[in-house]
């Protein structure tokens, strides 16, 4: 960007130089914004902010003298986290939750794929999917938990059902959009190479729909993750082993506040980790191919 000769469009960062004297070449706006705090690398900026927040947290706990029965400081939480992960008390619930989530997502994805295929292939399927998503999508997915418990009993199947239901609808919507919005020219190119049937789907339609597919899995996972934690909180223990939601509830019952926080932090960390994973997958595929603008993280 050449140094602007006219007044910049945005609000000037510094008072205008006196008229008559040649102004020193102004920094381009982007460079100006990058001065100071903005010039630090993202990781450093975030690290400093995080440290400041934790310090504020510790400061509040020390200064206000809140009862340890309702609030825990970062040091206690960190100790509980380490103990939980080292001793295995947090490991088993985490694995249980992830296993149920994975199973629910798998079933939900397969159903979403089948529904999408039906919807893209037939008019009736299309109408059916539109109607079902319009009816079920606004319903918070934990809301079907009572029904699931009635149908399947107090077991893991009920949880898997709730998660599959949470994942299915947003994913079917994304997949459907993905397949419907494949550019006509792209399909024409495949057809003019003589591709038909499954090969046309595999080599042309599926990769062309990938941006929406990844977005769908991402939304599906986010819905599923919130749903399973909520369901576990309500549901309590399934069989002998409870998940993270149960772990938190259990800790609350025994007024073990640091462990409540440790459970929450674990949930947040897993959420962050999976989000980073999806971002990395997108970077390597659809962003690299220019099929989607890179989302800054």
């Amino acid at each position: 960007m050449p140094p602007p000769t006219d007044a910049p469009a945005g609000p000037p960062a510094a008072p205008a130089p006196p008229a008559g004297r040649r102004p020193a070449p102004a920094l381009p706006r982007s460079a100006r914004r990058r001065a100071g705090w903005g010039r630090l690398p993202t990781a450093v900026r975030r690290g400093v902010l995080l440290a400041a927040l934790i310090a504020a947290w510790q400061g509040y706990v020390s200064a206000a003298g809140v009862s340890p029965l309702v609030f825990a400081g970062p040091a206690d939480v960190a100790a509980a986290l380490v103990a939980g992960w080292a001793g295995g008390d947090l490991v088993a619930p985490t694995l249980t939750t992830l296993r149920l989530l994975g199973l629910g997502m798998l079933i939900g994805s397969v159903l979403a794929l089948a529904l999408t295929a039906l919807a893209v292939g037939t008019r009736l399927g299309d109408d059916l999917l539109s109607l079902l998503t319009a009816m079920i999508n606004p319903l918070p997915s934990v809301a079907v938990l009572p029904l699931a418990m009635l149908w399947f009993g107090l077991n893991e199947t009920a949880l898997v059902f709730v998660v599959a239901n949470a994942v299915l609808w947003p994913m079917a919507v994304s997949l459907g959009t993905g397949f419907r919005t494949v550019p006509a020219t792209t399909v024409a190119v495949g057809r003019s190479l003589g591709l038909r049937g499954w090969r046309l789907v595999r080599d042309i339609r599926l990769p062309a729909a990938l941006p929406h597919t990844i977005a769908g899995v991402r939304t599906g996972w986010a819905f599923g993750w919130r749903t399973i934690i909520a369901a576990e909180l309500v549901f309590g223990v399934a069989g002998a082993r409870g998940g993270l939601g149960f772990y938190i509830n259990d800790a609350r019952y025994y007024l073990d506040i640091p462990n409540v926080f440790a459970g929450l932090v674990t949930i947040a960390l897993i959420g962050i980790a999976l989000d980073l994973l999806f971002t990395a997958v997108e970077r390597r595929t659809v962003v690299r191919w220019g099929m989607r603008e890179g989302a800054a993280t």
């Binding site: 550019p183 020219t185 792209t186 024409a188 190119v189 003019s192 990938l210 595929t285 191919w289």
Partner: peptide, 15 residues
């Protein structure tokens, strides 16, 4: 057997 060069600019497979 009838290869086409399309008029549209999105005729390459982006991936």
């Amino acid at each position: 057997d009838r290869a086409v060069v399309f008029q549209e600019s999105d005729q390459l497979l982006p991936w």
